[in-house]
Amino acid sequence: MPAKSKAQQMAAGAALAAKRGETSKSELRGASKSMEKSMSEKQLEELASTKRKGKPEHVDRR
């Protein structure tokens, strides 16, 4: 499942780093905090590895 926006890709990267122990979980905020709790490392890897080129900064929630 590729990321739909740059913001989602960056949040997944932050959550993945926390899940791997590279950063502190207490540093996470917002979407990255909930992603870290609810997604597996493999799912986070898929989102974080998405190419940013051509992606919008944010996507409307509809």
Rank of each mutant, 00 (worst) to 15 (best):
A31M: 12
A11I: 04
M35I: 06
E27Q: 14
K51C: 06
E45N: 11
A3G: 06
Q9R: 15
G30D: 03
E27D: 12
V59Y: 06
S49A: 06
P2D: 01
Q43Y: 03
L44I: 00
E41K: 14
G30E: 04
E41Y: 05
E46K: 15
A14E: 11
G21H: 01
M35P: 09
A7I: 07
M39W: 04
R20Y: 01
R61P: 09
E41I: 08
A15G: 02
E57P: 02
A7Y: 09
M35C: 08
V59L: 12
D60K: 15
S49K: 10
L28P: 03
A14Q: 12
A18L: 02
A3M: 06
G21S: 02
T23Q: 12
A12M: 06
L47G: 04
G21M: 02
T50F: 00
A3L: 06
G54A: 01
M1K: 15
L28V: 02
S32E: 10
K53P: 04
T50R: 00
L28G: 03
T23L: 14
R29A: 09
H58A: 10
K51G: 11
P56A: 00
E41S: 14
A31C: 04
A15I: 02
M39G: 03
G21F: 01
M1N: 12
Q8M: 09
A31V: 11
A11V: 04
L44C: 01
E57N: 07
S34N: 14
R29T: 09
L47W: 04
M35W: 09
S34P: 09
A17R: 15
K55N: 02
L16S: 04
S40M: 02
R29S: 11
L44D: 00
M35Y: 15
K25Q: 13
M1W: 09
K25H: 12
K33D: 00
A11D: 07
L16Q: 03
K4F: 07
Q9Y: 05
E36N: 10
R20A: 07
K33A: 08
T50W: 02
E41W: 05
R29F: 11
P56I: 03
A48G: 08
D60Y: 10
E27G: 13
G13V: 01
A12V: 08
Q8N: 03
K4N: 09
S38T: 13
K4G: 14
K42F: 05
K25S: 15
